[in-house]
Design a protein around this nucleic acid. Structure first.
Length: 282
DNA sequence: TTCCAGGTACCCC
DNA sequence: GGGGTACATGGA
């Protein structure tokens, strides 16, 4: 299927796919991006306000893409609000003005960010790709390339550390297996259930934080990138750098307090603008 | 060689 | 509850 969505503002593919929230979208020479979401392969192009989505899905799923790309939310208002609360962030917002927080799958996000710990983005991408190629399902080809789904919890739960050695996950392999075992059964439904607006950020945090290999940083990424808890403010090495440089705050606890008080309900968006700014700056 | 990367678990006090 | 340290791996 092919969709054309018009008059889209505050939207930039490079900002969205290169701000560290996702690991499986690839840029093509024409500037479009191709990725896998669920069991469909999709290509997205964006030019002068028009968004063209080409997908292998046969059924109508326009509203799905609206949700996934977070098109219903007014990022213009959010950015205005953030600058009003804190003028210092405006340069970061200008730099990543087209960022949108994708509404990703909680299971894939959980595993991806367990893999991300103490690693770097190119290697994280490679690990995840190998994981999908070896243990996901082949879902089709697009422009000569074969694509694979993200392996289900039931698949990873049955693997051994030796099976996963091909992915070069290091000490994280055992976390994947343990977490997958926790998620199988009714766990998957509980994980999805955390998306519900009635589930508070605190409640979601303590649940996600209880998985093997998940600490505060990974938990906050899962909350922000897949559970719609937009006040979450993941603190990693890059955020520490930018907070020191722009605000003179080094202590992690102070960073959290500052973010909560300053950015409030949209701490997650603020974090993404700051993270992207600091990473591009190097 | 050493350092570092979207950190966490575990131990000690 | 804060403060060290080991942990797999690959690129700079």
């Amino acid at each position: 299927m092919k969709y054309k969505l018009t008059n889209i503002k505050d939207f930039n593919l490079d900002h969205i796919f290169d701000c560290g929230q996702c690991f499986r979208w690839e840029k093509a020479e024409d500037g479009s991006y191709t990725g896998i979401v669920g069991s469909q392969i999709a290509n997205v192009q964006f030019e002068s306000g028009d968004l063209i989505i080409t997908t292998t899905a046969e059924e109508e799923c326009r509203s799905f893409w609206h949700d996934y790309l977070d098109l219903e939310r007014s990022y213009g208002e959010i950015k205005k609000n953030l600058v009003k609360r804190d003028p210092v962030i405006s340069q970061s917002i200008n730099h990543g003005h087209g960022i949108r927080i994708l509404q990703q799958d909680p299971w894939e996000t959980l595993i991806s960010f367990i893999i991300s710990q103490n690693s770097n983005i190119p290697r994280i991408k490679k690990c995840i790709q190998t994981l999908c190629e070896n243990f996901g399902e082949q879902i089709g080809t697009y422009q000569g390339k074969t694509y694979f789904s993200f392996p289900a919890p039931e698949i990873i739960a049955e693997l051994t550390v030796e099976d996963l050695a091909v992915c070069r996950l290091g000490y994280r392999a055992k976390y994947l297996i343990q977490t997958a075992k926790q998620v199988t059964g009714d766990g998957r439904e509980k994980l999805q259930g955390m998306k519900h607006p009635d589930v508070s950020e605190e409640e979601a945090f303590s649940y996600i934080n209880s998985f093997a290999g998940v600490g505060p940083k990974v938990a906050n990424c899962v909350l922000l990138f897949s559970l719609g808890k937009y006040e979450s403010f993941p603190v990693d090495v890059w955020v520490k750098k930018v907070m020191k440089e722009l605000y003179g705050i080094e202590n992690e606890k102070e960073i959290r307090t500052f973010a909560k008080e300053t950015f409030g309900a949209y701490g997650g968006m603020a974090q993404q603008y700051l993270f992207y700014y600091m990473r591009e700056k190097e």
